[in-house]
């Protein structure tokens, strides 16, 4: 376990063009399906909006008046026409808005990702492609289907991971202007994404957007995500994981470093 694996890099005709090392720390984890299960449960719980709501007897309009006298009518006693027993009445113990989000230790979340990626490699469902690019000017679904049909599996679904950041981050040597300390690529990328979440624009790669649009009509079959968007649920939901070497590096950075602490 935890042994570096050398896998071939293929081109889009699935011919070998080189090789890449996948670090064992990330790609050769023991297949802990319980960890993966916990992460998936956590993910799905956090997706829940928690906005479902029905009205109780106090929230349904009307019903303030006692419908008939307590005694002497021969009918069952009733205090309100909106009681749960009435047609059109409120719901007893109905769903209320609720925060369903769970917390999961970050170490378990990261381990879950490693295990999910490792299971792809162990099952022979991981392919590294030198480039995931649509050659034509406009997004072309046909070009993408031609590529994935080479894998010879009708029912296989594909998760394509490509680097979405427009800057070639390997060339980037970020230096803190105050201290002159060189930051790691990982820190820089994490910062970039943190700022993107705040609303700052990040330079997105045109090729990535084109690829994403090309896959838009293949909803159930192909999903295109950046390495930062790699998650356990998608890894399990899609059969084959196809990555570019750039994405492999980004994922390796993301999963082999300790979680970033910003100070």
């Amino acid at each position: 376990m935890l042994i570096d694996r050398v896998v071939p890099v293929v081109n889009r005709s699935l011919e070998g063009v080189g090789s890449i090392t996948l670090p064992g720390l990330v790609y050769d984890q023991p297949l802990r399906k319980d960890i993966v299960h916990r992460v998936v449960v956590w993910q799905r719980a956090n997706w829940r909006q928690g906005t479902v709501k029905v009205k109780t007897r106090s929230e349904v309009r009307g019903g303030g008046r006692k419908p008939w006298p307590q005694k002497g009518t021969g009918r069952a006693r009733a205090g309100s026409i909106r009681s749960p027993l009435f047609r059109g009445g409120g719901k007893a113990h109905g769903p209320r808005p609720k925060d369903w989000s769970q917390s999961l230790n970050s170490k378990i979340r990261r381990l879950g990702l490693r295990v999910a990626v490792s299971s792809k490699l162990a099952a022979g469902q991981l392919t590294v492609v030198d480039e995931l690019k649509i050659e034509s000017k406009a997004p072309k679904t046909k070009e993408l289907t031609e590529f994935i049909d080479r894998f010879e599996h009708d029912r296989t679904s594909f998760l394509l991971v490509d680097d979405a950041v427009g800057i070639n981050w390997e060339d980037y040597e970020p230096v803190d202007p105050l201290t002159g300390v060189k930051k790691s690529h990982w820190q820089w990328r994490a910062n970039l994404l943190r700022n993107a979440r705040k609303g700052e624009e990040i330079p997105l790669c045109e090729d990535f957007l084109k690829l994403k649009r090309s896959a838009k009509n293949l909803k159930k079959r192909v999903k295109v995500i950046p390495p930062e968007g790699l998650n356990v649920y998608d890894l399990l939901a899609f059969d084959r994981l196809v990555m570019t070497p750039r994405a492999v590096k980004a994922i390796t950075y993301r999963l082999s470093h300790p979680p970033p602490r910003f100070h």
């Binding site: 293929v10 699935l14 297949l31 993966v36 299971s119 162990a122 469902q125 010879e152 599996h153």
Partner: peptide
Amino acid sequence: AAAAAAVPSFPGASEPL
């Protein structure tokens, strides 16, 4: 090439999660 990309069915491969 295409055949090589196929998921091999041999006893050594683990069941995918």
